[in-house]
């Protein structure tokens, strides 16, 4: 860890990586909380994997892959969301299909683009050390959109994630807010792909919020704690992977996964003990 701190001061690419991790953790904390409480992890996984189609196409046509990823993620979110609202029985099949078709399209485009192997691996598993400094501005902009939208419509999102039927009765436009929420999930997926790649994105999107949910019992509180945890996992993952020269993304995910399991056991133990104590009163 000392080596990392010394290198961090010396190398600007490490500073950029650290900032990218911190910017990504804002999305993972705020939107990851909605994904966890609304139980749409599989949907978010579908969006994340379908993104490869957009990245591959953008790479092939010489456009910034991140913009291709953003377009594909939003398109996938709108398709999945519309099917979920209008055609509920087929929801999981369609997510699975979109998941695989998106990846297949991406792989075909990448296969026909020079530099295939390196790019594919960094898209799938991320490489935070290769984030160009100019991408930080795009990430900050995406964070700004997330925070502004959630800040303005916090209660509408809360109601739609909590009780869709009641929201509909109150005349709240459920379809609009549900699709908007999925678009925010899509933006977050793109933010996180920079850091851990599209295969591991789902872990960073859900684990910090799930750990926060063990101890915090308000949505806003969960968002705050999950953002801090996301920042801690990306920073520590980067630091721990530096000296042994391990890939940073998987190190972050293993760290988050290990702490999630420990936290789930601890929270189960605490709940069990409280229930026993109450039973004896």
């Amino acid at each position: 860890m000392t080596d990392f701190l010394t290198a961090l001061i010396a190398h600007s690419f490490l500073q950029t990586a650290l900032l990218a991790g911190l910017l990504a953790s804002v999305g993972c904390g705020v939107i990851g909380t909605f994904v966890v409480v609304k139980r749409i992890t599989f949907m978010a996984g579908g969006i994340a994997h379908a993104v490869l189609g957009g990245m591959g196409a953008a790479l092939y046509y010489g456009i910034d892959p991140l913009l291709g990823a953003l377009a594909a993620a939003i398109l996938a979110a709108l398709i999945i969301g519309t099917v979920r609202l209008k055609w509920q029985a087929q929801e999981d099949t369609l997510i699975g299909a979109l998941w695989a078709v998106g990846m297949a399209i991406g792989i075909l485009f990448i296969a026909k683009t020079p530099g295939y192997a390196t790019d594919l691996m960094s898209f799938l598993f991320g490489n935070i050390l290769l984030v160009p400094p100019r991408e930080l501005w795009l990430m900050a902009g995406l964070d700004g959109i997330l925070l502004l939208t959630v800040g303005v419509f916090y209660r509408q999102f809360l109601l739609v994630t909590f009780d869709e039927e009641f929201a509909r009765l109150r005349g709240v436009p459920v379809t609009f807010f549900y699709l908007l929420l999925l678009c925010l999930v899509a933006i977050t997926v793109v933010l996180l792909i920079q850091v851990v790649g599209l295969i591991l994105v789902i872990a960073l999107l859900t684990l910090p919020a799930a750990i926060a949910g063990h101890y915090v019992h308000s949505l806003a509180g969960m968002m705050g704690v999950a953002t801090l945890l996301g920042g801690a996992f990306t920073t520590l993952g980067l630091g721990l992977s530096y000296a042994p020269d391990l890939p940073a993304g998987p190190t972050m995910i293993l760290l988050a996964g290990g702490i999630y399991i420990a936290s789930a056991l601890l929270s189960h133990f605490i709940t069990h003990r409280q229930a026993r104590r109450q039973a004896t009163i």
């Binding site: 409480v37 139980r39 209660r155 039927e165 109150r170 005349g171 019992h217 949505l219």
Partner: peptide, 21 residues
């Protein structure tokens, strides 16, 4: 239609009843 373990307090649940389109 909601999960009983949703992280929300009673007063927040009731206040959401004030929202409208």
């Amino acid at each position: 239609n909601f999960a009983r373990d949703f992280p929300i307090s009673v007063v927040e649940v009731v206040a959401l009843g004030c929202l409208s389109g």
